[in-house]
Simulated assay, not measured.
Amino acid sequence: MSDRWRTLRRRIITPDVSETRLDVRGFHVKNQVARDILETVGKSFLAGYAIAAEAKDQSIAERRIDALQPRFRGFAYEGAAMAYAVIDGLSLWRRDNSPRFLAGPGDRHIYMAYVGIGWAMARVPRFRWQRLVLPDPTLRWLALDGYGFHQAYFKTARYVYDQYRDPSFTWHGGGPQSYVQRAIDQGIGRAMWFVYGTDAVRVADAIDGFDPERHQDLYSGAGLAATYAGGADEAELQTFWQRAGEHRPFVAQASAFAAEARIRAGLLVPHTEVATRVFCGMTATAAATLAETTRPDGPDGDQLPAYEIWRQQVAREFVAIGRN
């Protein structure tokens, strides 16, 4: 493929950077600091997407993404994973970009990479979804998390304000179908941290307005975003923790997952330490270790996927040490 064609491909398939602006999205602006953080997250995502769409090979893309700020680098890898999945999903012939990325440059950022594939699901026609490769049977549910985030971020009125669930959604990724909407809700909750501008009270108020059966997954998703993306100080995180009520063990679980994602990638930053101290009652390293060592080895259950079994085990560990 020529350099000219790769440049053209990048221009055609890369979303416009204006879509990352909070005013364009109609999201709440808490303050300028939070706005800058959230908009830089979006710009970093699109930077990774554009780099992957244009790079001659994945090693070049890796070097360019690794030059970005550590705080936002994981989002660039998420964007790169989306780009490779979109290319595979739309290609008439090759479809090995995404698997090579997951096994290569994306491996250290594997959680973000699976979420990025979920973004691709939202942009690739459904009849092409079978071309999107999800080799890890536990982490494949993160693609649905990514899909839910995308829908809440770009179709906010429908998925957040109107609390929509798509009755026609069909998941071909395997595992218990009854868990599909729950995984999507975790992504919606994560997006709500962005929609409400990292304002802990507004996020909690919005979650509490949903059907109670959805609260656990929405709070968990928002807790993950608060830990990984940041944007709230310690007092605000304490407020969110208090508002989560009975769902605190799953906020702690999600915070531990976010810490593990950052530490695996070598991208641990101060705001993640603050969040795990508030939500988990421990350092980010300790929380990440707890998450890593409780990951199940077995297959999906009849009613729950291995991913949810893992989440519940981590939540129980936090209950046992009084984080409830």
Score class of each variant (00 low, 15 high):
residue 149 F to M: 03
residue 149 F to Q: 07
residue 151 Q to Y: 14
residue 152 A to M: 12
residue 152 A to G: 14
residue 153 Y to P: 01
residue 154 F to M: 15
residue 154 F to C: 09
residue 154 F to I: 13
residue 155 K to D: 14
residue 155 K to V: 03
residue 155 K to T: 06
residue 156 T to I: 10
residue 156 T to S: 14
residue 157 A to K: 13
residue 157 A to C: 07
residue 158 R to P: 13
residue 158 R to W: 09
residue 158 R to N: 13
residue 158 R to S: 14
residue 159 Y to N: 01
residue 159 Y to S: 01
residue 159 Y to G: 01
residue 160 V to T: 13
residue 160 V to S: 09
residue 161 Y to E: 11
residue 161 Y to S: 15
residue 162 D to E: 14
residue 162 D to G: 08
residue 164 Y to Q: 10
residue 165 R to Q: 15
residue 166 D to Y: 04
residue 166 D to C: 09
residue 168 S to T: 13
residue 168 S to F: 14
residue 169 F to V: 05
residue 169 F to L: 15
residue 170 T to Q: 13
residue 170 T to F: 04
residue 170 T to V: 11
residue 172 H to D: 13
residue 173 G to Y: 06
residue 174 G to V: 04
residue 174 G to A: 10
residue 174 G to M: 07
residue 174 G to D: 11
residue 175 G to R: 00
residue 175 G to Q: 00
residue 175 G to Y: 01
residue 175 G to E: 00
residue 176 P to Q: 06
residue 176 P to V: 06
residue 176 P to W: 03
residue 179 Y to H: 09
residue 180 V to C: 02
residue 180 V to D: 00
residue 180 V to I: 02
residue 180 V to N: 00
residue 181 Q to E: 15
residue 181 Q to A: 11
residue 181 Q to K: 05
residue 182 R to I: 14
residue 182 R to G: 07
residue 183 A to L: 12
residue 185 D to A: 08
residue 185 D to R: 03
residue 186 Q to R: 08
residue 186 Q to H: 05
residue 186 Q to Y: 08
residue 186 Q to N: 11
residue 186 Q to D: 12
residue 186 Q to V: 12
residue 187 G to L: 03
residue 187 G to M: 01
residue 188 I to G: 07
residue 188 I to Y: 03
residue 188 I to N: 03
residue 189 G to P: 02
residue 189 G to H: 00
residue 189 G to C: 02
residue 189 G to S: 10
residue 190 R to I: 02
residue 190 R to M: 08
residue 190 R to K: 14
residue 191 A to I: 14
residue 191 A to F: 08
residue 192 M to S: 10
residue 193 W to Q: 06
residue 193 W to K: 06
residue 194 F to D: 01
residue 194 F to Q: 01
residue 195 V to L: 09
residue 196 Y to P: 00
residue 199 D to T: 05
residue 199 D to A: 07
residue 200 A to E: 10
residue 201 V to A: 10
residue 202 R to H: 06
residue 202 R to M: 09
residue 203 V to W: 00
residue 204 A to G: 12
residue 204 A to Q: 09
residue 205 D to M: 03
residue 205 D to A: 11
residue 206 A to M: 07
residue 207 I to H: 02
residue 207 I to S: 04
residue 208 D to E: 14
residue 209 G to S: 09
residue 209 G to P: 13
residue 210 F to V: 12
residue 210 F to T: 06
residue 212 P to F: 07
residue 213 E to K: 05
residue 213 E to D: 10
residue 213 E to I: 05
residue 215 H to T: 08
residue 217 D to T: 08
residue 217 D to R: 07
residue 220 S to G: 10
residue 220 S to R: 01
residue 220 S to K: 02
residue 220 S to E: 08
residue 221 G to F: 01
residue 223 G to S: 06
residue 223 G to F: 03
residue 223 G to H: 01
residue 224 L to G: 12
